[in-house]
Structure formats: structure tokens, C-alpha cells
Write a protein that binds this DNA or RNA. Structure first.
Lengths: 337, 337
DNA sequence: ATGAAAGCGCTAACAA
DNA sequence: TTGTTAGCGCTTTCAT
């Protein structure tokens, strides 16, 4: 039961040269059916598997890509991206690539990348969500191909897979209006300006379409963390008139909002409806479960790898934006009609 | 700016042999300070990095380990393990190993493993949670080292890192008793018999210690999925007398329980307190946030890699059980005293 | 249609 | 203390 058969062993056993074996393994032309069968028989019997390490050396490639998380982002905020990872993995397997799990950090202006990236021991990188400029330029000097999945920036020189968040926001707010809501609040943050702009524009478009005004007393776009969330929600709840529904830029904001409303004795959706964008794992697990616009993380992952493979193989390729109007109706929105 | 410097280039530039360069790179003895400095200068100037691919071939190792998820387990149930992954990654980097993200599936008796495992393109594997017997024997015939993190089985021949769930359960229930609870329900499942046994024993021990009886009308250990959860909780709520607190085997059961109780208008913790084991990410995000016994996923990950490295390097090693009595007090338990 | 031989970038036994 | 040399297991060019 020796397990370390090499191509030489197979060649010997089949009475051919290793070139022949190699040709057969790689499906090349110019081998007679007879020898092909003979060799394949030996391979079958011995259960021989060529090792990748020789190929890696010969081709100067590692046949791995890394998905690189931002270490400074709390794991909770990354929930959305864990779903993407499964799509990445699936697509990598399709290309016979391995997917390595990795992370970078940027504290102050101190950028840290793992050794396997610095040593160029990966053929390409996938980032999730916008990445800082210093990282982009570092990657350019390293000359390593990368794709940003769920990018929100407006860089046109990068390879990205984006979701259409304007459409997603429009879809969410339009749904609220359909359900009879006329007083619709907004909760968001401006951490990612381009993202904010898209979402706000979708929100605004839906309001305008139905001749609804934008009421600033229910409009909070400077949420930073849990504390500011509480402060702003507190402010909103102290108004004489409350919105009947609140649109949140991201599920995780909505989850915090719901948590806070419940804490204050406000019932969701009886008193206030809540809707958001993303459809992260836990949105279906909280009470009330969250009505939201799903972002197709399967597509996000699949296209990212496709583009990255094109880059690795020096093929022509291009960025993609996926449509995002798939509303997932759950319990957090009440119908007023 | 040619990027593909090899050890030969460095040797040439420093006027030494590549052996010398190799020795210096690997910190071997027997090189004069003078040449060492000379070579290191060249390396510094050129920013030369040896590529791993040659080493991989020479050492017949890939310098990667894979963390292998069970594909059939819903992502939500894996939330606990995503936290472990960060510890795995950190420890892998410490050993200069890459961590590849991977999965297996077992449908019926059809076991599927990814090619990079079958081709032995990883040096070792980490599994999270108990794995099926067919997989264990497959791994043995493949002759690939593996460690099971958070195993609950009683196999003594495997390398595992376990948490002390008996202690965790005892800690949780003891805490409830300390808070004045005398009527404590139990919700769990028997999917993993050994796990169940441990947890039940901890629950029982805490009750017995305070001379509290085990009331079977509040005892449900056959939870399967959401539907059975609802059924059983329904049964429990229809009793004339209710427990003041419920202990759940896992956070995710507790989260479902809370969701269901709220749906029925039962307030947590005013009407019923809830406590569990795990401390998954979302337990702090729901309302009320969940009081639970944390399992130290940092240790779980770190020790798993340590053991795996010992196995890979053919060093003597042994399984570990980590202590687990760290209670995280949040909002879901009410004090009765 | 098949084989001989060189080489990918390292490590390490052996020689000097 | 340093250099020469032979691999590690593949792919591929060039002969035959």
C-alpha cells in the first residue's frame, strides 16, 4: 500500500515513457487508443493521482486563490460575506483551485498582509466590500490580480462585482408604499459614501414616484455604532408624530433598530414596520423576522471567481453589476391596506 | 523591476553558491558573518522572497491545512464555528501554513470530499463538530492527519479538542439557581448522544445539588427542527404551571425558543428566563440578548492547530479538553431574589 | 505515436 | 566555511 506513486512508476508499470503518461493525463492528442487504454488501466488499478506540487513548480502557480477579510471589521458585520464564501468555494472547486481563508488589517496607516500574499503564494485575491486605497496601490506594486466582490466605490479601473443597491433600496421602499405606508423613515450611515449615495437615491426615487415628501425628522444617516443608534432612535421616538415604517440601509442596522425599539416597548411591526437590504443569515431568526431585499450572494461569489480566473489566465474580462430587486417578505412589515 | 528573482540570481549577485544562500535563508550554522551579511544585503536590496513551490516539491508537503465544514449543516448552525476559524487562521499563520476553506458532504451513504483532500494536496485537516464514521475510516485509508475541534464523541483513538460541556451545563443551571430559580426547564436534542449525555448530566448535577426535582413536564429533549420546537414549546406553555427559567443545550435553540415565546406573547425574561451554552455571534444582537456560557473558541482553534502540527511533524501529541465555566451575563435571565 | 532529456527553484548530502 | 551536484515529480521541446 505504498501511497507515493509517481508518474515514473506508472510509466514503468505500463512500459511507456512518462511523457506518454503525462500526455494521457492531460488529454493531449497523438496517443494511440491502445497505449492510452493500457496506461489508463494501470492508473485505474493503482489509483494513481498526480501531485499538484510539481505542476506548481513548473507553472509557477500555486493554484490557490485567497479570500481576504478585513480583520478590523467585526465578525457580525461579515455575516453577509460568509454566505458569499460558499459560492466562492464552489466556483473555485469548479476551476480546480483551492480557496484559502485570509485577512488583512489596516490600523492607522499600518497595512498588514499575510505572508502568503506578500510572497505571492496565491494566484489571486478576492476582497469582500470596498478596500482602502493604500491596499489597492500595494496590490498593484505586488502585481497580483484581485477582484472586489460587493464593491461600492466608483473606481472604474478595478475589477469588481457590484450589486445594484439603488434598485435594492427602491424595491424596499416601493414595497412599503405598496403596503400603504406614507411615512417612511431612513436609517443609514455614510461610511461608504458611494454606497450611501446609491441607496439614498433609490429611497428618494421611490418616495418621489409616489409624491411623498422626505421628512427629515425621521431621517438619520449618521449612524456610527450602537451608541449613536440608540441616541438617534431616541431622538426619533421623541417626535410627536412617528413614521409608520423605517427603511434601513443594511440588515444589521435593522436588527439593532428592532432590538432597540423592542427595548423601548415599541412593537414591530404593529407600531412601526422595518425593512432593510441584504438578507443576512440571522434576519430570519430574530423576532419579528426581517423583511428585506436579498442580495444574491451566490452570483456575487460566482462572478468574482470567474473574473479572477480570467485575470489569472490573462484573458479579457470585465466588471459586473448584478440586479437586486428580490424582496424577501417576512414579519417585520405590516400592511396598512 | 523583474519580480521573479530566484535563489540563483541572488547567489550570482552575491558571488556565492546557492547552497550558501539557502543556508542563510534557513538560518543554518556554518556561514561566516561576512558572507552572511553580504548575502542578506543583496536579499534586502532586491527584496527577494523564495517561493514556496520548490519547497513543496522537495518536502512533498503543501504547507496548507484545510478546515472542513459539513456541507449539509445549515450555515446558521455553523455560526459558532466561524468564530473558531479566526483562531485557526491566526494559529496557521504562526506556523507559516495556509488555511484552506473546504467542505464535505454525506448524503445517504454517499461521501464526497473535495479533490484537494483526495489528492492529498493538504497536509492535514481540521473538522468542526463530530464527523461520521465513514468519514473517519476514509481518512484513515487516505492516511491524512486530522483533528476534530469541538468533538463530542467518545472515540479515544482520535485526536480531538473538546469542551467540557458537563461543566458548561452545570455552570448555566447553577447560575439560574443562584438567581433564585427553582423551576428550570430543559430544551435539547439527542442528535449527538455523547454531547447530550454530558449536558444532561451537568443539568442534573446542578439540580440535585440544590435538591430540586427534575420536572418532566418542562423537559424536552427531542427537538428536531423549527416545527418540533414549536410543537414542544406549545405543549409546555399549555401546562398549568410554567417553569421560571429554561436551560437550552445550545444558543441557537435558545434563540428559536425566545423567538417562539415572543410570538406567543410570553415576555423574556419577565415571564420566563432563558439561558444556554455557546455564545454565538448573534446572541448579543437579539432582544433580549442571551445570557449564556461561552465556549472558548480561541482555545478550541489554537489547540486544534497545535495538535495537527504535531501530527504532521510526527511528534508525540495528545487530545485536549478545555474547561468551560465562563458565564456571559446578559438580559435573558431575571433575578428572583 | 512515443521517448529522451532539460528544467521549474529549491534543499541537502557530499566534497573540497 | 563554501561549492558541486543530484534530485523532488511533473511538463514540454525536440528527436526519432
Amino acid at each position: 500500500m505504498k501511497n507515493n506513486l509517481t508518474i515514473n512508476d506508472i510509466a514503468e508499470m505500463a512500459n511507456v515513457s512518462k511523457t506518454t503518461v503525462s500526455f494521457i493525463l492531460n488529454g493531449k492528442e497523438g496517443i494511440s487508443e491502445k497505449t492510452r487504454k493500457k496506461v489508463l488501466d494501470v492508473i485505474e488499478q493503482t489509483n494513481y493521482k498526480p501531485t499538484l506540487n510539481s505542476k506548481r513548480l513548473y507553472f509557477q502557480k500555486s493554484f490557490t486563490v485567497a479570500v481576504v477579510f478585513d480583520k478590523s471589521v467585526p465578525v457580525f458585520d461579515n455575516l453577509f460575506y460568509f454566505a458569499v464564501m460558499n459560492a466562492l468555494l464552489k466556483r473555485c472547486m469548479h476551476y480546480n483551485y483551492s480557496l484559502i481563508y485570509s485577512e488583512f488589517s489596516l490600523v492607522g496607516d499600518e497595512l498588514t498582509l499575510p505572508d502568503n500574499i506578500l510572497d505571492k503564494d496565491v494566484d489571486g485575491l478576492i476582497f469582500l466590500k470596498d478596500i482602502p486605497l493604500v491596499l489597492i496601490s500595494k496590490l498593484h506594486t505586488l502585481n497580483i490580480p484581485f477582484v472586489i466582490a460587493d464593491d461600492h466605490s466608483e473606481h472604474t479601473s478595478l475589477y469588481t462585482v457590484k450589486a445594484d443597491y439603488q434598485l435594492a433600496a427602491y424595491t424596499a421602499v416601493h414595497y412599503l408604499i405598496q403596503q400603504g405606508h406614507r411615512h417612511i423613515g431612513f436609517i443609514g450611515n455614510m461610511n461608504l459614501p458611494a454606497f450611501y449615495t446609491q441607496v439614498f437615491s433609490g429611497y428618494q426615487k421611490a418616495l418621489k414616484e409616489s409624491d411623498l415628501p422626505l421628512d427629515l425628522s425621521w431621517f438619520f444617516d449618521k449612524i456610527q455604532d450602537r451608541d449613536t443608534t440608540e441616541t438617534y432612535i431616541g431622538q426619533m421616538l421623541s417626535q410627536k408624530e412617528l413614521p409608520t415604517a423605517i427603511f434601513c440601509m443594511e440588515d444589521f442596522l435593522a436588527i439593532e433598530l428592532i432590538r432597540y425599539l423592542q427595548k423601548q416597548g415599541v412593537r414591530v411591526p404593529q407600531d412601526i414596520s422595518v425593512i432593510a437590504i441584504d438578507d443576512i443569515i440571522i434576519s430570519s431568526q430574530i423576532y419579528p423576522s426581517l423583511t428585506t431585499v436579498a442580495i444574491n450572494n451566490e452570483e456575487l461569489g460566482t462572478y468574482s471567481i470567474d473574473i479572477l480566473m480570467d485575470l489569472i489566465n490573462k484573458k479579457e474580462t470585465h466588471s459586473i453589476t448584478i440586479s437586486s430587486n428580490n424582496i424577501v417578505v417576512r414579519e417585520s412589515v405590516r400592511s396598512l391596506i
